[in-house]
Design a protein around this nucleic acid. Sequence first.
DNA 1: AGCCACTCAGGTACGCTGTTCGCAACGAAC
DNA 2: GTTCGTTGCGAACAGCGTACCTGAGTGGCT
Lengths: 232, 232
Amino acid sequence: MADEPTLVWAKERRSPRRQAPSVERIVRTAITIADTEGLPALSMRRVAAELGSGTASLYRYVASRDDLLDLMIDEVKGAEDAEVTGDWRADLMSVARQVRTTLLRHPWLSGAIPGRPALGANSLRRHEAALAAAAPLTGDITFVAGVVDAVLAYVFGTVTQELAELQAQRRSGLTKEQWQASVGPYIREVIESGEYPQFSRRVIEGVDRSAEEVFEFGLGCVLDGIAARASR
Amino acid sequence: MADEPTLVWAKERRSPRRQAPSVERIVRTAITIADTEGLPALSMRRVAAELGSGTASLYRYVASRDDLLDLMIDEVKGAEDAEVTGDWRADLMSVARQVRTTLLRHPWLSGAIPGRPALGANSLRRHEAALAAAAPLTGDITFVAGVVDAVLAYVFGTVTQELAELQAQRRSGLTKEQWQASVGPYIREVIESGEYPQFSRRVIEGVDRSAEEVFEFGLGCVLDGIAARASR
DNA sequence: AGCCACTCAGGTACGCTGTTCGCAACGAAC
DNA sequence: GTTCGTTGCGAACAGCGTACCTGAGTGGCT
C-alpha cells in the first residue's frame, strides 16, 4: 500500500474478476434471449454481453454453441411434471398438453429439436412419465412404447405447424396486420386460379377453429385410435 | 401502396434473356449439397463454387439464403404425386408414406421446415391432394381439414424422431459403431440408476421394431381414430 | 458506325459469427 | 514468498451472409 500509484487515471483498469457465469446461468440467459429474440439472435457474444462477461469465458462452461442448445432444450423440458393417475387416456392427454405448452412457450424449441436425440435427464424423465401414463393400457411394453411415440410425434408435429405462421411473421419483421396484408393477396390468387378446389373450400367454407381446438381434435383422433387398437 | 410481396412464391421470376445459372440450377445444386453434406455445410459460397460462378451472382436469382431454403423445400416437395382412388384410408396412407419418403430422402428437410408456412406451389398441391384423399370421409370440410392436419402432423413428428439419431451421428462425425459405442455406456448407466423403470423395460424387454413398423403402427392408430370419429 | 441504356457477372468489403490461443490475475498450498 | 492449478478473457482467425460497385457485354436507336 506504500507505493500506490499517485495518479489514479494512470492505473490501467485491471479486470475486476467479475462474477463467474455458471452453466446454469449461461443456459438460462440463452433461453431468455432465444425466447424474446429468436434463435438466430442467439450468439455466444450476445449471451456473454447479457451476462456481463467475456465471450471466451463461456467456453469454460460450455463446449460449443451446439452443446449449449442441447442444454437449453433439456432445461426447458424440466419444467414439465405430470402426475400419473392410472387413467391412461387422461394421463396421456395431460402429458400431451404439457409438451404443447412448453413448445409454445419457447418458439425456438421446435426448430432446435430436429437432429438431436432426446437423451438429457429431463427428456428421459418426461419420456418415463409418458410411458408410465400409457402403461395401464397393456403389459406389452412394445405396444406402450409405440403409443407414446405416436402421441409425442403428433404433438410435436401439430405445434410445429401451429408455430409456422407465427415464426414466419416474426422473421419477416412485420406486424401481424402487415403480414396478413402481404399474404392475403397471394392466397386469393391461389384460390382464384381454380387449381386447388379443396384448399379453396377449406379457406372459404371451413370454420376457423382455434389452434387449441385443432390440437384437441387431432389428439382425440390419436387417442381414439389407440383405444381401438388396445381393445383388440 | 407499395405491395412488396414478402413471400418468395409471390415474386414472379424474372426471365433471363441470357442463359445463366438459373434459379432452378441454384436450387437443385443447393439440394444436393444439403443432402450429402447437411444443412450447416450449405453456404452461398459453397453453392456458387459448385456452380462455378461468383458468390454474389446468386443474389441476382435468389434474394437471400432464407429464400433459397424456402425454394429448396418447395422443390423437394414437388417429387410427390399421389393419386386419389376414393378409398380415403388407402389414399391418406399413400400420402403419408410419400411424405415420409421425402423427409427421409432429404434429412435436412425436417430441420428446415419449422418456422416456415408451407405456401409454395408444390406444398399447396400436396395439401390439395391430402384434402382430396380425405374428402370422401364427409362433406364437412372443417372435419376433413382437421384430419389432414392431424395425419401430416403425425408423419412429420415421427420422421423427425426417426431422423434424430441419424442426424446426431452425422453431426458428431463418428461412424455408426463409434457412435453406438459412445452412447451405449450412457444408456446402461441410465438404466442402472433405477430411476427410469419404464424406460428400462422398453430398452431391455421391448422388441426392436424397424422404423417402418413404428411408423405404420402410429399411422394405423391415427387412421383408426379418424375412422372412429367419422362414423359417429 | 457510333452511341446510349441497360442487364448482369462477380470482385471486394463490411460486419457478424463460432471458436482457439495464450496470457494475466487470482486462491490455495507449501 | 513462491509456486501452481484455475479461471476470465482480449485478440485473432476462418468463415459466413450480403450490399456495393465496377466493368463487360448486349440490343436498339440514330
